[in-house]
Amino acid sequence: MKIKKFNVGTTGLDRFFGPLEAKIMNVLWDAEHPLTIKEVQQSLDHEKSLSFNTVMTVMNRLVEKGALQKQMEGKSFHYVPLESREDFLDHQSRELTHELMEEFGSLAVNHMVDVLEEVDPKLIQALEDKIRQWKNNG
């Protein structure tokens, strides 16, 4: 799934999805099996009253975006994420990093290294290890 919009200034899945889309994706990722629209609606119902049609519209939009798969089981459709939360975040962060490098090159690298020190100095060691591994394989 290729995300076309990245929401700067938000956190978590809200960076990639609208707020309701992110909540729906979390419900489906936390489920151990595919869910119907009604089941998702009921899982979200504690937050605010959402109509079946609203949840259905958003879930079908997520199918169109390539985040969910819709499958007929019995007399109703069940929805399941096309990839795990971990794989989704891995793919999206990789794609975002690739785009930053293509567009901003060394500026992006410099800022990433600066942020590594601010966030967690141990990440510098992880970066050095990765560079060493890359050089040994190249």
Results as ranks from 00 to 15, higher is better:
Q92F: 06
Q71H: 11
R94N: 11
D14P: 02
D45K: 15
K4V: 12
S93M: 13
G138E: 10
D87N: 14
K38H: 07
L96G: 02
D45L: 14
G12R: 12
V58T: 11
R132P: 05
E95C: 04
M56R: 15
P34A: 14
T36R: 03
P19M: 08
K130L: 13
G9E: 14
K38W: 05
S93G: 03
N110G: 12
D87V: 09
S84M: 04
V55S: 01
N26F: 00
K65S: 06
V27T: 08
E86P: 01
L50G: 03
Q133M: 09
P34I: 04
H33I: 08
L96Q: 08
D114G: 12
F104G: 04
G18L: 06
E99W: 04
D14R: 11
F17C: 07
E95V: 07
H91K: 13
T97K: 09
Q92P: 03
P34R: 03
V109E: 15
G105F: 04
E21D: 10
S93Y: 12
P81K: 01
D129G: 06
K5F: 13
Q71L: 15
M25R: 00
Q133I: 05
L82M: 13
Y79M: 03
I37A: 00
Q71Y: 09
N136H: 08
E86S: 06
T36G: 05
N53I: 04
V8T: 10
F17A: 01
I37D: 00
D14W: 02
N53R: 12
G18D: 09
V8I: 14
L123H: 06
A31G: 02
I124W: 01
E117R: 08
F16N: 02
G18R: 02
N26Q: 11
L13V: 03
F17L: 09
T11F: 09
V58S: 00
E128G: 09
F104M: 10
L123E: 08
A67N: 06
V80A: 12
M25H: 00
K122M: 11
L50P: 02
L116A: 14
I3H: 03
M101I: 11
Q133N: 08
N26H: 05
Q69C: 09
V115N: 05
F6I: 14
Q92L: 04
L28E: 00
R61A: 14
A67I: 06
Y79W: 04
F77Q: 01
F88I: 05
N53Y: 12
W134L: 15
E64N: 13
S43W: 01
T97I: 09
F104D: 11
K65W: 07
I124G: 04
D14C: 09
K70N: 06
P121Y: 05
M112E: 03
E99K: 14
M25V: 00
S84F: 02
S93P: 02
Q133G: 10
K75I: 10
A108W: 01
F52K: 08
R85K: 15
V80D: 04
G105S: 15
V58W: 00
R132I: 15
E103K: 11
M1G: 06
D45R: 10
A31Y: 00
W134H: 15
L35D: 00
N26R: 08
V119R: 08
K48F: 07
D14T: 10
F52Q: 04
M72Q: 15
S93V: 10
